[in-house]
Amino acid sequence: MDGAGAQVSDGVRRAGRSQYCDAAGVKLYQRRVTDPPETILDAVREVEQTFHKAGYHLPLWNTGTTQTLPLNDPLEPEQAADHAVRFYLAGLYARNWGLERMYFYAWGNGKIPIVLQAEGQPPTKAGLLVAVLQQWLAHARVTSCGHGPEVSLPKNVWECRFTAPDARGAPGTTRIVWADSGTATVRAGTGSSIVRHLDGTALALDAEDSVQITERPVFIEHTDAPSA
């Protein structure tokens, strides 16, 4: 996002009023609507660092996007679906830098680049895939998120790991893995049992199996904690 940190820094220095706030509202969006959703994380880091330098430690809330968003053309349905799911995941990833809430702009609006469900219409593919993601994450608790070589993944691959009860109610470990562009191959990892796709298909896995990663996230279940 252009100028996010500069605007926050200027406001903190000139007003010095953040000490009286419960949270800091920021607007997070890609420079272009076609850019990967993960690019908003640069702005999150910049804002968090700016507050840290100023001596404030406020929780961050993403309260929307740019006013010009409705002026952009809609994304193609497949890209819109991928971006909607990854925007949600980027919000979870941004918890690393104090982002506590993230809102999807203009739910019900049919005139924005990513439409989940226009008023009076059935859900779009983007809306349906976000619903599947929410099912995956029901009762889950995020434990960590990482990107690229820092977590022994290819440089274009991201993941978030969770704990959640399995079908028997026993504690289980899962991870959601995706690419910001292109494709990659990753090892399933220790205790892998199944990989689930957003279209509802699933495939059994062994620890040494390879999983093809694309710009559409996959859900990998583990019987034990996965290896790095």
Rank of each mutant, 00 (worst) to 15 (best):
S181R: 13
I220M: 00
A228P: 01
G182R: 13
A228H: 07
P217M: 06
V186N: 01
S227G: 15
G172D: 07
R31F: 14
A106I: 01
E159W: 05
L28P: 00
Q117H: 08
T183A: 10
L89D: 00
G172R: 03
T174A: 08
Q7I: 11
Y93T: 00
P154M: 07
G146Q: 05
Y105S: 09
L137P: 02
P37G: 13
I112K: 04
H52C: 10
L116E: 01
P217G: 11
G169D: 10
L203P: 01
E76V: 05
P217F: 03
S152A: 15
L203R: 11
A184I: 05
Y103C: 03
A140Q: 06
V47E: 01
A179H: 03
F104C: 06
R187T: 15
E150L: 11
H57M: 09
E119Q: 13
A84M: 07
D209V: 11
T201C: 06
A6C: 05
L203W: 08
P74Q: 15
K27Y: 10
L69N: 04
H139L: 13
T143K: 12
G146S: 13
L92M: 09
D224Y: 09
W136E: 04
A24T: 07
Y20D: 08
E76Y: 01
I213D: 02
A204V: 09
W158N: 00
A140N: 05
G3E: 10
T68V: 14
L69M: 11
V85Y: 00
Q19H: 14
L203T: 07
V186I: 15
H57G: 06
A167R: 06
S18I: 11
D180Y: 09
A131Q: 06
A118T: 01
W61Y: 10
V44L: 08
G11L: 10
A23K: 04
A43W: 01
D209A: 11
W107S: 05
K125R: 13
A6F: 08
A80Y: 00
G127Q: 07
G169A: 15
Q117I: 04
T173F: 05
T183D: 13
Y56I: 01
F51N: 02
V130M: 07
P154Q: 12
Q19I: 10
G200Y: 08
F87S: 12
T34K: 10
Q135V: 03
G5V: 03
G172K: 02
A126V: 03
V218S: 08
P171V: 14
R45K: 14
V12P: 01
G55K: 10
A202N: 08
A202W: 07
S181F: 14
G146W: 04
D22I: 08
L205K: 00
V33F: 02
A138W: 10
A167T: 05
G172H: 01
P59E: 11
G127F: 03
V177R: 05
